[in-house]
């Protein structure tokens, strides 16, 4: 069979590239343009070019603090969601029960409901008159309800639960490398269960776990609804900040600059990650 000619391959790629250009590249260019427009003191956008918004953002310790909170929230969520998703994924991959399909569907089913609905679910559970508080009050462990909702804790809990299905899918798709025969081979060669886990399972699934962690991190960092609904206005992350600058203070220049910086952050994280993964592949 002959490979299709170059022009034909180009043609086949064209619709995808076009869609990407229209839905991603164009808005990005637009965003970049907005971020460099001058803005007068009373908020009027003027024609021209200036890096004022970037200077403003980078020179303001508040935004650095927001950036740090964002990264911290993403890391924490990834560190919680991935270890919790791993046993579930492993179980789903290994299970031979005929309920396996149902169980897999159940694990991923939360994705069928919108994030907003699930976040409200957490508000009900964590609220002042929510399930947990009610239970603690009823059992006498608390005299007054404690604040579980409206804050970083609630945001992290909700984000972890909301993003876990993504982690499960990501890990599950990477468990293909983990053939049970390979583990059996290792055991027969004399490896104890701990050694099998450390020397075979872990190195084989680590790239998958890292990918899942990256996915969760990126989704957590870019999430808006959950920090907004669960944060009680206390959780300042880049996404909420961009939203506020866009819709409340109408400072689109700063919103644009923050968006571009967030994109750069993603790019940086992904490239660092790539390098770590590569090094890992080389080491094992």
């Amino acid at each position: 069979m002959q490979a299709p000619p170059r022009w034909l391959r180009g043609l086949l790629l064209a619709p995808g590239l076009l869609a990407l250009a229209v839905t991603f590249l164009l808005p990005l260019v637009w965003l970049g343009r907005i971020s460099v427009l001058p803005r007068s003191g009373d908020g009027v956008t003027l024609p021209g070019f200036t890096l004022q918004a970037y200077q403003h953002v980078l020179g303001d310790s508040f935004y650095w603090w927001v950036l740090w909170k964002t990264v911290w929230l993403g890391l924490l969520t990834a560190c919680l969601a991935v270890p919790m998703a791993f046993p579930i994924a492993l179980f789903l991959a290994r299970s031979t029960t005929r309920w396996r399909g149902v169980l897999a569907a159940l694990a991923i089913a939360p994705l069928l409901t919108s994030t907003v609905i699930r976040t409200y679910g957490w508000m009900v559970i964590l609220g002042r008159h929510g399930m947990i508080n009610d239970m603690l009050l009823w059992s006498g462990m608390l005299a007054m309800p404690v604040r579980l909702d409206n804050g970083t804790l609630a945001t992290v809990i909700a984000l972890t639960e909301i993003l876990m299905p993504y982690a499960i899918i990501s890990i599950l798709s990477n468990l293909g490398r983990l053939d049970t025969e390979i583990e059996q081979a290792a055991a027969l060669l004399g490896a104890t269960p701990v050694q099998v886990f450390r020397r075979v399972i872990l190195p084989l699934v680590l790239p998958g776990l890292m990918t899942a962690a990256l996915l969760v991190f990126v989704l957590a960092v870019s999430s808006l609804v959950t920090p907004q609904l669960m944060g009680g206005g206390r959780v300042f992350v880049l996404a909420t900040e961009i939203f506020n600058e866009t819709t409340l203070t109408l400072n689109w220049q700063v919103a644009g600059a923050l968006s571009i910086l967030l994109l750069l952050l993603f790019g940086g994280v992904i490239s660092v990650y790539q390098r770590i993964l590569q090094r890992m592949e080389e080491r094992f």
Partner: peptide, 18 residues
């Protein structure tokens, strides 16, 4: 398994890909 001291060659070879 790890105390049996048996060598096994699998049909798939089951080599460690990493």
């Amino acid at each position: 398994l790890h105390k049996r001291n048996m060598g096994m060659v699998f049909q798939s070879y089951a080599l460690f890909p990493h």
